[in-house]
Amino acid sequence: MLRHALRGALLGVGVAGLLLSATSATAKSKWEEAQHPGFSFEGPLGKFDQGALQRGFKIYSEVCSSCHSMNLVYYRNLAQPGGPFYNPKYPNPNDSPYAKAIAADVKVPDIDQDTGDAIQRPATPADHFRNPWPNEAAARASNGGALPPDLSVISKAREDGPNYIFSLTSGYPPSPPKGLTVPAGKYYNPYFPGDLSSFWSGPKDKVPKGGFIAMPFQLTPNRVTYDDGTKATTYQEAHDVATFLDWASDPKQEERKQTGLAVMIYLLVFAGVVYGSYRAIWRNVAH
């Protein structure tokens, strides 16, 4: 009986494995595989490092936010459980002095209720992150026709999200490979998807991997000054911003994994109890 069950289980696992490999299989890539710097939130028990989240938020607000919106993230989210500025003293994130102070530093567009005029007012925890552009056309006009993507769910919207963000933002080479003609207003990045064969004058079998991106290299050393004294290297900045963006994409990640652990323990115990009942009930039946 057990042998049968085992064989069944093995087959099931095999089939699931095949399905998974079929889904994740991709074509031969023309760009570099993302690096794996290692993150605290990886794995079934991983948690966000709150210091890294705060540093990452600093990168976003001082560097990224001048071009990239995050329309689905609200200032209150910063102070919710698991967020960069969560403090158990303020269970309601809207009351958090951190969220209030961060929001108050930002002006967001609104309508004056008395006159109907367009005004700018300080944001509140209930506002979403300020959009740097009034509309898509303005964003494109200021970026050579390219649209800086909204970063709210960017980590989920890219294969291997955090590793990709880390590799892309820190992976600009000092200069593009010799023989590659880089169009005006574009920058070479080996991790950005693309096909460079028509811009390449070197040997046909040595086309550089990667693509052209409209964003120049941003995370230069000491681009920001960290409040906790951490040295702001390119590696550190990219690692922190990848952490922050992964949290923003999936802010309930810690809650999910903790719930999952409890669910797993419960189900395993339940399975054991029911298997015991099964053995007892079938004891006298030859099958």
Partner: peptide, 24 residues
């Protein structure tokens, strides 16, 4: 009881995806 046991085992795999690899 036999189907119940199988459903629970299946749910363990199901839960693994939901809680630990929801976008896999």
């Amino acid at each position: 009881v036999k189907d119940g046991f199988a459903v629970i085992c299946f749910t363990i795999m199901f839960a693994w995806f939901v809680f630990f690899a929801p976008n896999a």
